[in-house]
Simulated assay, not measured.
Amino acid sequence: MDIKETIIETQQGGVKIVQYNKPSKKNAIDQVMYKRVIRILNEAAVDENISVMVLTGTGDFYSSGNDFSAPPDSNTGNHLNVLKEYINAFIMFPKILIAVVNGPAIGIAATTLALCDMVFASDKSYFLTPFTKLGIVAEGCSTFTFPRLLGERKAIEMLLCNYRLSAKEALEYGFVNYIYKPEEVQSKVWDKIVEVSKLPKHCITITKKLVRDAVREELLRANDKEIEELNAIWIKGQRSKI
Results as ranks from 00 to 15, higher is better:
residue 25 K to L: 14
residue 21 N to R: 06
residue 31 Q to Y: 07
residue 114 A to L: 10
residue 194 V to G: 00
residue 92 M to D: 15
residue 105 A to T: 03
residue 89 A to G: 05
residue 80 L to M: 10
residue 30 D to A: 05
residue 179 I to K: 01
residue 43 E to P: 05
residue 82 V to S: 08
residue 127 F to K: 00
residue 186 Q to G: 09
residue 173 Y to R: 10
residue 120 F to E: 00
residue 104 P to E: 01
residue 241 K to M: 12
residue 44 A to R: 02
residue 138 A to K: 06
residue 16 K to N: 11
residue 102 N to P: 04
residue 7 I to K: 04
residue 30 D to K: 02
residue 46 V to I: 14
residue 184 E to P: 00
residue 237 G to Q: 07
residue 1 M to E: 14
residue 40 I to D: 03
residue 128 L to F: 13
residue 166 S to T: 15
residue 132 T to Q: 11
residue 190 W to L: 01
residue 116 C to G: 05
residue 194 V to A: 08
residue 102 N to Y: 02
residue 81 N to D: 15
residue 187 S to K: 10
residue 168 K to L: 13
residue 187 S to V: 12
residue 122 S to E: 02
residue 143 T to F: 03
residue 82 V to R: 03
residue 44 A to F: 04
residue 165 L to W: 06
residue 8 I to C: 08
residue 34 Y to M: 14
residue 140 G to L: 02
residue 11 Q to M: 14
residue 80 L to R: 03
residue 145 T to L: 01
residue 74 S to P: 14
residue 85 E to P: 02
residue 215 V to R: 07
residue 102 N to W: 04
residue 59 G to A: 04
residue 89 A to T: 05
residue 162 N to I: 05
residue 242 I to L: 10
residue 58 T to S: 09
residue 227 I to S: 03
residue 53 M to S: 06
residue 90 F to T: 01
residue 121 A to R: 00
residue 76 T to K: 06
residue 226 E to T: 00
residue 170 A to I: 08
residue 79 H to D: 13
residue 51 S to R: 10
residue 241 K to L: 13
residue 62 Y to C: 00
residue 120 F to A: 01
residue 132 T to N: 10
residue 212 R to Q: 13
residue 71 P to H: 08
residue 12 Q to N: 15
residue 97 L to Y: 03
residue 3 I to V: 15
residue 64 S to R: 05
residue 26 K to Y: 09
residue 187 S to E: 09
residue 85 E to R: 10
residue 217 E to S: 12
residue 175 F to V: 04
residue 159 L to W: 01
residue 44 A to L: 07
residue 42 N to S: 07
residue 52 V to H: 00
residue 21 N to Q: 08
residue 120 F to R: 04
residue 138 A to L: 05
residue 147 P to Y: 02
residue 139 E to K: 02
residue 212 R to M: 15
residue 202 H to N: 12
residue 201 K to Y: 09
residue 228 E to T: 08
residue 232 A to F: 06
residue 35 K to A: 15
residue 154 K to L: 15
residue 180 Y to E: 05
residue 12 Q to R: 14
residue 43 E to Y: 04
residue 49 N to A: 07
residue 93 F to G: 06
residue 7 I to Q: 03
residue 143 T to D: 09
residue 77 G to N: 07
residue 12 Q to I: 15
residue 45 A to D: 07
residue 220 L to K: 10
residue 154 K to M: 15
residue 45 A to I: 04
residue 222 A to Y: 02
residue 202 H to M: 11
residue 143 T to E: 11
residue 233 I to Y: 05
residue 219 L to V: 06
residue 239 R to N: 12
residue 180 Y to S: 03
residue 186 Q to T: 10
residue 130 P to A: 07
residue 20 Y to W: 14
residue 184 E to G: 03
residue 200 P to N: 06
residue 202 H to F: 10
residue 198 K to F: 04
residue 156 I to L: 13
residue 239 R to C: 09
residue 100 V to W: 02
residue 9 E to L: 15
residue 118 M to K: 14
residue 35 K to D: 14
residue 124 K to S: 12
residue 19 Q to M: 14
residue 144 F to D: 06
residue 15 V to L: 09
residue 3 I to M: 10
residue 78 N to A: 09
residue 22 K to M: 11
residue 139 E to F: 06
residue 111 T to L: 01
residue 87 I to R: 03
residue 124 K to T: 13
residue 104 P to L: 02
residue 63 S to Y: 00
residue 178 Y to D: 13
residue 42 N to T: 08
residue 50 I to F: 01
residue 35 K to F: 11
residue 84 K to C: 08
residue 79 H to I: 14
residue 226 E to F: 02
